[in-house]
Nucleic acid binder design. Structure first.
Lengths: 190, 190
DNA sequence: TCAAAGTTTCAGAAATTCCTGAAACCGCAG
DNA sequence: CTGCGGTTTCAGGAATTTCTGAAACTTTGA
């Protein structure tokens, strides 16, 4: 591996991190390299930079494409494919969230749904099913929220983030306003 | 493996899922089993239920404890340790988020911070550092938000979730109210 | 149509991770 | 102290994943 030290540390870290992250070392390194590179790179340049085999790079790039984490760039007068990462980090975040959901959450959700359809035989199964229902409910809430939020433009999303827990303040205010606006009845909170 | 079919499917699914999830098959299975079990189980019962070796179960339980995903339960007049999962799914969610952050995000954040302190030599390094700064900024925003939100009680958190993207509506309302309340100057949005 | 440049596939070698059985360990009751 | 019920550790074999080099395939320009 022949890279400026700063870049090298970054690349190596991503390689290791990839592990706890569902992608392999090489894939992590390729991504990191493309992420910090000022220009799109072709496969051979990646081979050169990382010191891994050509085929390994090829497979890595395929995987990153499957994750929608790299883009193909055509350089004029060069037949070879060149690769970059999307450069807006928010965009990257969205892609990442979407892909992980697809891989880690959706399959579980569908298994749960299926199991919840079945008739429990024993009391034990009944209990198990109740627990599964709890899990299913939570995951469904989370994904609904996510589907909702992911549609926001970046600017609004950022604003929301910045607000953080203070949103609850906003909610309190709203509740108060609402209950002022119409005569108080029993405990009702919109 | 000798389990009611419903439970078995669930357990097997978690075993497979564990893969894309940073834990190994056995650990996933143990967790799933404890999650749906109506009573705390001891190690031998787990061995029996899953058909894996005693030592494998022992290691699995250790790992789950490291993740704070299982609880030790003492059953009167029984020397053996019994295990369950926390039963509030929201609680589980919190633990999970916390642990994953600790493992997947914090190390990256600290590497980034370190690399950002260094003086870039070449122009290439300078660009790389700028990219790292972007990434660092985003991650920091996200973790700040997370730290903020994780402190909310479950009820509020759920309310927030339910609101979903509608929060932005709330924000718009607020902006309008604020700008009504005081005389309009230049473009200022609190 | 062919050759050259580039890319992908794939079988098996290398590396890593997971799992097991045996042995060591621990705490306690007798 | 000793034996027992119980738990943990660990070396090495099994299984899985990752990586490589060679061969096959594709595209393009002449």
């Amino acid at each position: 591996m022949n890279l400026p030290p700063l870049v090298q540390s970054f690349v190596l870290h991503f390689g290791e991190m990839g592990r706890s992250w569902g992608i392999n070392r090489t894939v992590g390194q390729i991504y990191a390299l493309l992420y910090v590179s000022p220009v799109p790179l072709n496969a051979d340049q990646i081979v050169e930079a990382l010191g891994v085999s050509r085929s390994n790079v090829s497979m890595g790039l395929r995987e990153l494409q499957a994750w929608n984490l790299v883009l193909l760039r055509h350089i004029p007068d060069d037949r070879r494919d060149h690769f970059t990462t999307p450069d807006d980090v928010w965009q990257i975040l969205r892609v990442l969230a979407e892909e992980r959901k697809k891989r880690e959450v959706d399959p579980t959700l569908s298994v749960l749904r299926e199991l919840l359809m079945q008739k429990p035989g024993t009391a034990e199964e009944k209990h198990a099913q109740a627990r599964m229902a709890e899990m299913h409910g939570l995951i469904e809430q989370l994904t609904t929220w996510y589907d909702d939020v992911k549609r926001l433009e970046t600017e609004r999303l950022a604003a929301l983030l910045a607000l953080g827990a203070k949103v609850t303040k906003l909610m309190e205010v709203k509740d108060r306003v609402v209950s002022l606006a119409r005569p108080r009845r029993a405990k009702e909170t919109a």
